[in-house]
């Protein structure tokens, strides 16, 4: 289903998972996705092993319950991004 802001990318307004080339994974509400990167509102960041949880475990918890919006706004450059998916598309185990 589309949004009213066609210039912000197909994921505008949706909660997305941004996997990076490093240890970090982000979850947040996509504001804009461009060839330069992605801009998230109300985001959270998890690093592999943080709080004793793998990124996969963190994402499973978020898929079930949602994520805590600890970061108001963040920009992630395209060179650091390995994958962007909707949180809703993550299958719960």
């Amino acid at each position: 289903m589309g949004t009213f802001h066609s210039d912000k990318g197909a994921l505008h307004g949706m909660t997305v998972v941004v996997k990076t080339t490093g240890k970090a994974v982000y979850i947040g509400r996509c504001d804009t996705q461009t060839p330069d990167g992605i801009f998230l509102n109300d985001a959270d960041k998890h690093e592999e092993g943080q709080d004793g949880k793998s990124n996969a475990e963190y994402l499973q918890t978020a898929a079930q319950w949602g994520h805590w919006p600890r970061i108001k706004y963040i920009s992630i450059p395209a060179r650091e991004i390995s994958e962007v998916t909707r949180l809703a598309d993550l299958k719960q185990s």
Binding site: M1, G13, M14, T15, Q64, W65, G66, R86, L87, A88
Partner: peptide, 24 residues
């Protein structure tokens, strides 16, 4: 939006906003 489900007064299921986003 979100949805909370209860059975005999206890929460048993929860559906967060991201399930609705972009859905039909």
């Amino acid at each position: 939006p979100s949805v909370y489900m209860f059975k005999q007064g206890k929460p048993v299921a929860y559906v967060p906003r991201h399930v609705f986003e972009g859905g039909y």
